[in-house]
Amino acid sequence: MRCKKYIYKVCAALAFSVCSVAHADDLENVIKIGYARVNLNTKSGELTGPPGTTPPGLGLGVKDLDVLAMSYERRLSRNWAVQFQAGVPPTLTAVGAGTGQSVGTVATARIWFPTVLALYTFADVPVIRPYIGLGVTYTFFTDQKSSSAYTSAFQGTSSSIHLKGSWSPYARVGFEYQLDKRWIINLEYSSFRMKTVATVVTQTPGIGAISRRVDIKGYPQIFGLTVGYKF
C-alpha cells in the first residue's frame, strides 16, 4: 500500500506540473519506448545480527539490470518539457559477497524507480539536439523473496526479506535525432542514488526468529536507447 501511495504522489506531481503550464505555446506529447542497461554500482556493509549468530565479513552484491524503458513527455515550449518515466520492473538479484560469496543467490525482488524530470532541450542545435534533465525518483521493491540457499547457510527453516525504499535526485543528459515530423531516436545517460536496508528474518529451530540486516548503497548509471513518437 505504501508503494502505491508513492506512485500516486509522483503521478500527481507530474499532472500538476503539466496543468500549471497548460497555456504554453507549442504543446506536444511524446511517447518513448526502448532498452536501458542499468549498472547498479552498489556497495554493501556487513550483515549484522544478534551477538553470536552472524559470522563477520558477510556482504551482498547486486547484479546489473536490463530494462524495457518507457516514458511520457509533455513539451511545454520549444525548450522545456516535463517527463514521467517508468518501465517493466526487472528482477533484482542479490548474491553473497565477501565471506558469503559461496552462498550464491541470496534474494530476489522486483525493483521500481518511477521518475519525474524537467527537461531542457537545446533546440537551436541542428540535426542532433542535446538536452539535460533533472528530477526526482523513488526506488522501491516488490515480490521480495529470500533464497533457500541463504536460509540453509544459517541453518533455518524459512526466511523473509524486506528492502526499504528511498527518494533520490535524478540527472540525465541525452541526444535526440529527428527522423521525420513524428519519429525520433533518443540516446541518453542517467544517474541517481540508491540506498536501501535489507532486513532478513530467519526462523531457526530451537531459537526462533533471528533478524539480520545489511545496508546497501549505490549510484546506478543508466544507458538508454529509445524510439519516440510525437503526437
Score class of each variant (00 low, 15 high):
P114A: 09
Q101P: 00
K181Q: 14
W112L: 05
W167E: 00
P50L: 11
L134E: 00
T42Q: 11
I207P: 02
P126R: 14
E28M: 07
C11T: 14
V106Y: 14
G165P: 11
F122A: 11
A107C: 05
S71Y: 08
W80S: 05
D25G: 12
T202L: 05
A209H: 13
V127C: 12
K195I: 00
V10W: 01
V116M: 13
V95E: 08
C19H: 08
A109G: 05
T54R: 11
M194W: 11
E176G: 12
L68H: 02
L40I: 14
T157V: 05
G98W: 12
E188V: 09
G49A: 09
F175A: 14
R182Y: 08
G49N: 10
L179Q: 04
G100Y: 08
Y6E: 04
R172G: 00
G98Q: 09
G135H: 09
Y131S: 03
T157S: 11
A81E: 00
W183S: 04
Y150V: 00
L179N: 03
D143C: 10
K217F: 01
A123H: 12
S190P: 02
L117N: 08
S77T: 06
V82W: 14
A123N: 04
M194G: 11
D124C: 14
G49W: 13
R74M: 07
D124T: 15
Y189W: 09
S77G: 09
V103T: 14
L163H: 08
M70R: 07
C11L: 13
V106K: 15
W183Q: 03
S17P: 02
V136Q: 13
G34D: 03
T53W: 02
G228K: 09
V38M: 06
C11H: 10
Q178F: 04
K9I: 09
T105D: 11
A86L: 11
Y189F: 12
T54D: 01
T105M: 07
P130Y: 10
P126E: 03
Q101Y: 10
A86D: 00
A171Q: 03
S159C: 06
S148I: 00
T157M: 05
D124N: 15
F175Q: 04
T151D: 14
P90F: 15
K43W: 02
T108C: 13
A198M: 07
S17F: 12
S71K: 13
T54E: 04
A13C: 13
S44K: 12
V125S: 03
V227L: 15
M194A: 10
G156N: 05
F141I: 06
S71L: 08
I7E: 04
P169Q: 06
W80E: 01
R172Y: 00
V62C: 04
F223S: 08
K32G: 02
V227N: 02
T93E: 13
R193A: 04
P114M: 09
Y229N: 02
V127S: 12
S44M: 08
I207V: 15
R75I: 01
A209C: 06
N29D: 04
W80R: 09
I216G: 02
V95M: 10
I184D: 04
Q85D: 05
R74T: 03
F113A: 13
S102R: 09
G59H: 07
F122E: 00
G57W: 12
R37Q: 06
C19Q: 07
W183C: 03
V88W: 07
F175D: 01
I161H: 06
K9W: 12
M1H: 10
P51G: 04
G45Q: 10
